[in-house]
């Protein structure tokens, strides 16, 4: 619950501050956001299933973001950045879908 409030607070802060992203970071921000969303939904699912572990959440959150960014960075270096970005988004999207499906089953029992 507090986590979602924190997300909303962050959104508001982002809208108000409207920071400028440095160029080197620009390709990684959307990927990082997707990865973090994946971690967030995974954490929500674990919390509903009463197996939530704060430390695991923190570690998986950071690791997700870093790994996703690293994959894209690697792709950029190899000249396949666009394709790898797409691949990462697809994989993370599938995971998010699966986690949301689990949450839905947990909430609606259906």
């Amino acid at each position: 619950m507090y986590a979602f409030i924190a997300v909303v607070v962050g959104i508001v802060a982002g809208l108000i501050l409207s920071p400028t992203i440095p160029d080197w970071m620009a390709p990684y921000l959307p990927i990082a956001v997707i990865a973090a969303l994946d971690a967030l939904f995974g954490g929500a699912r674990a919390w509903l299933e009463k197996i939530f572990d704060a430390k695991v959440f923190v570690v998986s959150f950071i690791a997700n973001v870093l790994v996703a960014a690293f994959i894209v960075f690697l792709g950029d270096q190899l000249g396949v950045g666009a394709q790898l970005s797409t691949a990462v988004v697809v994989v993370l999207g599938i995971r998010i879908f699966a986690n949301v499906a689990a949450i839905r089953r947990w909430v609606f029992k259906a």
């Binding site: 924190a6 997300v7 962050g10 959104i11 982002g14 921000l29 956001v33």
Partner: peptide, 8 residues
């Protein structure tokens, strides 16, 4: 995360 979403 929220900050990143808003920024992006």
């Amino acid at each position: 995360l929220g900050f990143g979403i808003a920024t992006q």
